[in-house]
């Protein structure tokens, strides 16, 4: 592959894995959600869709943040609309603590040098009212990571949910 001569795929692979780790650390920490949009490219999209709709080519997604503006808006919705996890301490609607368990992760490269990153995930959600954590979602990431120098960002992050019924509403990105 001609690409291999210009870039170090091993480095890119590691950068893509580091980006995923960084992503999980941020979405699992309600105090850090402001850092979430910076993980995405300027023309990125973040989509959460059920396998049912994905496979039937139905466009309705659970979340369709198809621009950087909407990705940034999600933080405003979490903080200002829902008053979750931060400044608006008097308006906690869902005082939930998410926990992602991710793996295995697989990485391929497109002709253009983007990394195509896939991973299995389960997300648990611990809420104040329950003693037991709730299994919130199980599914697969289908991500496209692009590189600018040494920096990796998500060009697309697609979260495909295995069940057509969500087990709970959720606040923080999956």
């Amino acid at each position: 592959m001609a690409l291999a001569g210009r870039v170090d795929l091993g480095e890119r692979r590691q950068a893509a894995l580091d980006l995923l780790t960084q992503y999980i650390r941020i979405v699992d920490d309600p105090r850090r959600i402001e850092e979430w949009p910076a993980l995405f490219s300027d023309d990125a999209e973040y989509i959460v869709i059920t396998r049912e709709n994905h496979e039937r080519n139905l466009p309705i997604a659970v979340i369709r943040d198809d621009s950087k503006d909407r990705i940034a808006d999600r933080v405003t919705i979490i903080r200002e609309f829902w008053g979750a996890g931060g400044r608006a301490a008097d308006r906690h609607y869902n005082d939930a603590w998410p926990r992602h368990v991710v793996g295995p992760v697989w990485v391929e490269f497109s002709e253009s040098g983007d990394a195509l990153v896939g991973a299995n995930f389960a997300v648990y959600q611990s809420v104040q009212v329950d003693v037991a954590p709730r299994l919130l979602a199980v599914g697969e990431y289908k991500d496209v990571v692009e590189f600018s120098g040494a920096t990796a960002t998500y060009k697309a992050k697609k979260v495909i949910l295995d069940t057509s019924v969500l087990q709970d509403v959720f606040v923080y990105p999956l």
Partner: peptide, 11 residues
């Protein structure tokens, strides 16, 4: 025209 549906469990 049907665009899709989303199902969720409310407790």
């Amino acid at each position: 025209r049907f665009l899709g549906s989303i199902k969720v469990i409310f407790r």
